[in-house]
Nucleic acid binder design. Structure first.
Lengths: 248, 248
DNA sequence: ACAAAAGTGTTCGATGTACACCCATGC
DNA sequence: GCATGGGTGTACATCGAACACTTTTGT
């Protein structure tokens, strides 16, 4: 019986060959320019075919021995210098014919993209320019037509960012260690749109959650009363982890 | 300048060859046995190496011309017959050395798993038994050690299921067309644990949302007052789509 | 003095929670 | 009649939305 089964399986395998894949990782890297209240995404100009001279998400093909997440971090390291970032896997796009190389390459090769989503601090992010104008922050509202299915990936990443902000403390991974409540509010406003909540309600809700500690240090920014600098208290947050939290 | 750049790129590509991948799809298929209040997951006994005779999630390698989602549906079709189901992509596991074949196969081949998460109706799901005892529903609380990293995938899928139930109407994709509010409550209780909400509050909240319509038909199940059968009204739900909804 | 930014408080309606209670059926 | 499951109602605390108001600074 087991022998007969073996045979049947190998027969069907022969009839239906497996596809060979190249696996790419594409990053949707967001940052928030709080000075200008803009949500930005990092784009690179492609230097090779296909889609030569088209803007695209920064990506790379995975190397032997390299995990997907390692590849995602490698892209980051090649394009920007940051200290703080948040990174998580987004989605895997793998339909046939999503990459024009599939048609021209040797028979049956497929290109699959595992996308990652990252949030970095704009003020500290330093772009590593390969060459002039090869890499740039684009306001998400003004991104041009991108290579491959990257517009779709970006849309997906944008939705994920909005959701993440609402129920997890990603914002603090991207703010400086000490920040004013207004810094935090601006970040939320920029990402979620400025009609998501009143400032004073936002403020009251966040403070009641109890994981923001007032350092007592005041900073003055132009006119107006100086603001307190707050810190994210990871220990106080720990018990709230995994619980449905609403920040909005 | 561009020429010099081209050269530099192709050099680094030669130094760092790309990995070749086989891409598999593994499904975490849940169903809820409302009669016994158990959450079940579908497992299959592996018929080949590696992990011969170990339980695993039903999976397959992707074929040429087949999309990832197509492959996920193909697994379903090979293992069970269902009319209603909910299916979505879960996560992609792709670290090196997650599959023992990587060590023995020709140099550099990697195995990557794109996992999908499915929910089917237990009462109508009909298992297609390859052979005796080759496929079975396991209570998620009693799953044995699985092949590969499938226990990890299952854990991930279980968490996704709980989240989905809370803020999206997946339950209705898996209930019969007409159901009592108690059927619905039992489903939630089984998946989320029975301390998630009081029945009468659950009931009131769901009805207030306005997308459950009372058919007027009554069913009696043993002793007690007969219950009304309700239908999910997709049109009434449409405006609520994409909005943060809480069912718990 | 006045504008600007930070921070506090108050009102009111909506929502969540924990119950107690009524209703219709089988046995 | 009474246990059983279905279904309704209520009381109370909490929460969110809107907005008025006070405090502290720069100019």
């Amino acid at each position: 019986m087991p022998g007969r089964q073996q045979k049947k399986i190998s027969t069907s395998v022969n009839q239906q060959p497996l596809a060979d894949f190249k696996v790419g990782v594409d990053n949707v890297i967001f940052s928030v320019d709080t000075a200008q209240n803009r949500l930005l995404v990092l784009l690179v100009m492609r230097q090779q075919e296909p889609f030569l001279n088209h803007w695209s998400l920064p990506g790379t093909l995975v190397r032997p021995g390299e995990s997907l997440e390692d590849a995602a971090y490698r892209i980051m390291a090649e394009k920007i210098k940051v200290n703080n970032l948040y990174l998580e896997q987004l989605y895997t796009f793998g339909g046939p014919n999503r990459d024009p190389r599939e048609a021209t390459d040797s028979y049956g090769v497929r290109y699959l993209s595992v996308s990652y989503f990252a949030l970095v601090r704009f003020e500290e992010a330093e772009l590593i320019a390969d060459r002039v104008a090869g890499i740039a922050w684009y306001p998400v509202k003004q991104v041009p037509q991108l290579a491959f299915d990257h517009n779709e990936i970006l849309t997906y990443g944008h939705r994920r960012l909005r959701n993440k902000l609402e129920y997890s403390p990603v914002a603090f991974e991207v703010l400086p260690e000490m920040f004013t409540l207004n810094d935090l509010y601006q970040l939320y406003t920029t990402v979620l749109g400025d009609n998501f909540s009143d400032y004073s309600n936002f403020r009251a809700r966040l403070l009641k959650l109890g994981f923001l500690s007032d350092t007592g240090i005041k900073v003055s920014r132009g006119a107006g009363r100086p603001a307190s600098l707050y810190k994210f208290d990871a220990e106080a947050f720990a018990p709230l982890k995994d619980k449905p939290l609403v920040f909005i």
